Amino acid sequence: MPIYEFCAENVTFLEKAFKAGAQRVELCDNLTVGGTTPSYGVIKAAVELAKDYQAKVIVMIRPRGGDFVYSQQELAIMLEDIKCARELGVDGFALGALTSENQLDTEALKTLLDASRDLEVTMHMAFDQIPKAAQPSAIHWLKENGVTRLLT
C-alpha cells in the first residue's frame, strides 16, 4: 500500500492533506530556496494536528538556503533544531550535509544522525549535488548509517 506524503511550508493546508489521505508530512519553511527548518510554533502545531490523523511529521533540518556545506556554527544550530523538534514529538528529519567537493560530509552527518537516533531520517536533495559516479557509495554509506529514505 502506498504512503502519501505532503510537503508543507506551514499548517495552512495540513488538515486538508490529512483528510485527503496524506500519512506523512515533510514540514519545512522557505520552499523557494528548497526548504529550511520551520519555526518551533509551526512544528508544534503540525505535530498536534498529525496526532488526530495518526500521521507522521518529518521536519526539514536546514539552517539556510544555498549549498549544503555547513560551518560549525550552522551544525550547532541544526543540532539545537533537532533537539527542539524531538522534544515536540516529531517522527523524523530530512537533512543532509556535504563537503566543498560535493561528497557526503560523513563527520557532520554522523553528528546529526546521532542526535536523530531512534527517529526516521531522510537524506534530502543535497544528494543530487553528489557526482553520479559517487552516488552508489553514498547510498551505501547512508543505508549503513541508518538513513531510511532518499529524496532526489
Rank of each mutant, 00 (worst) to 15 (best):
residue 88 L to D: 02
residue 41 G to M: 01
residue 72 Q to C: 14
residue 83 K to L: 13
residue 73 Q to M: 13
residue 92 G to D: 09
residue 59 V to Q: 02
residue 49 L to F: 07
residue 89 G to L: 00
residue 50 A to D: 05
residue 65 G to N: 08
residue 82 I to S: 12
residue 39 S to P: 11
residue 84 C to E: 13
residue 49 L to M: 11
residue 90 V to T: 14
residue 62 R to F: 03
residue 47 V to E: 02
residue 43 I to E: 00
residue 66 G to W: 12
residue 69 V to G: 01
residue 71 S to N: 01
residue 26 E to T: 14
residue 29 D to A: 00
residue 47 V to H: 10
residue 92 G to W: 08
residue 61 I to T: 08
residue 91 D to S: 13
residue 27 L to E: 14
residue 25 V to F: 06
residue 62 R to D: 11
residue 74 E to D: 11
residue 82 I to G: 03
residue 58 I to E: 05
residue 23 Q to R: 05
residue 46 A to G: 08
residue 64 R to G: 09
residue 76 A to K: 15
residue 28 C to T: 09
residue 74 E to M: 15
residue 24 R to F: 05
residue 85 A to D: 09
residue 92 G to R: 10
residue 50 A to E: 01
residue 30 N to I: 12
residue 76 A to Y: 15
residue 81 D to A: 15
residue 70 Y to C: 00
residue 50 A to W: 06
residue 98 L to C: 06
residue 60 M to A: 04
residue 32 T to I: 14
residue 70 Y to V: 02
residue 26 E to N: 04
residue 70 Y to T: 00
residue 67 D to Q: 09
residue 59 V to L: 01
residue 71 S to G: 11
residue 47 V to L: 06
residue 89 G to D: 02
residue 96 G to E: 14
residue 48 E to D: 14
residue 88 L to R: 02
residue 32 T to H: 15
residue 27 L to P: 10
residue 83 K to H: 15
residue 79 L to T: 07
residue 76 A to D: 15
residue 93 F to Y: 15
residue 83 K to G: 06
residue 68 F to E: 02
residue 44 K to H: 08
residue 95 L to T: 14
residue 56 K to G: 05
residue 28 C to S: 00
residue 84 C to G: 03
residue 60 M to V: 03
residue 54 Q to D: 10
residue 42 V to T: 14
residue 99 T to N: 02
residue 65 G to Q: 11
residue 99 T to P: 02
residue 36 T to L: 05
residue 85 A to P: 13
residue 33 V to D: 00
residue 45 A to Q: 13
residue 58 I to Y: 01
residue 50 A to G: 08
residue 47 V to R: 00
residue 57 V to R: 04
residue 34 G to M: 12
residue 91 D to E: 10
residue 25 V to W: 11
